[in-house]
């Protein structure tokens, strides 16, 4: 009986006054970690697996070059041979210097040396295409390169 008496006095509602604060906290977290995708993948990229991986530190200092076979819906336009994608369009190797320059403008000048090019290349692609891209990167003096890969479990 003593129990019922106690319960009768207190209201059983949980205060929801702090709910907005909690939601806002979550919101800010996601706002900070979010990176709005700027490029839609038009080529199939399934990066190979490796063990000796290093993490890319700052996203703003990285530009991405995708190499792979065009997705099914682009087959009629671009064929099935491995292609290079810069930004959100199919490109040729000759477009690389301009692409790098466009990215460089957005980076403060004192950090130009830290810009990394991340090559996200499909595992099935042959080295010929990759080699041409590498040569072009060397010609444009973009020497910091990252071969994007997945962690191999072993």
């Amino acid at each position: 009986m003593a129990f019922t008496k106690k319960r009768g006095n207190t209201s059983p509602e949980v205060s929801t006054a702090s709910l907005p604060d909690i939601i806002f906290m979550l919101l800010f977290f996601f706002m900070v970690v979010t990176v709005l995708r700027d490029a839609e993948l038009k080529v199939k990229v399934n990066t190979p697996q490796a063990t000796e991986l290093t993490k890319l530190e700052e996203k703003s200092l990285v530009n991405y070059l995708y190499i792979g076979r065009p997705l099914e819906r682009y087959h009629s336009l671009y064929g099935t041979k491995p292609r290079l994608q810069l930004g959100d369009k199919f490109s040729s190797v000759k477009d690389i210097p301009l692409f790098l320059e466009k990215h460089k403008i957005k980076v403060p000048e004192n950090r130009h040396g830290q810009i990394t090019s991340s090559l996200r290349v499909d595992g099935e692609v042959t080295m010929g295409v990759v080699q041409d891209v590498k040569t072009e990167l060397r010609k444009s003096n973009q020497l910091k390169v990252n071969y994007s890969a997945k962690k191999r479990a072993d």
């Binding site: 979010t34 890319l56 060397r138 010609k139 020497l143 910091k144 071969y147 994007s148 890969a149 962690k151």
Partner: peptide
């Protein structure tokens, strides 16, 4: 919905100058 927490990992390589 818009967030993509993809961390990019890979083999870091320094290409020789051209």
């Amino acid at each position: 919905v818009t967030t993509t927490i993809v961390e990019d990992k890979g083999l870091k390589v320094r290409l020789p100058p051209w």
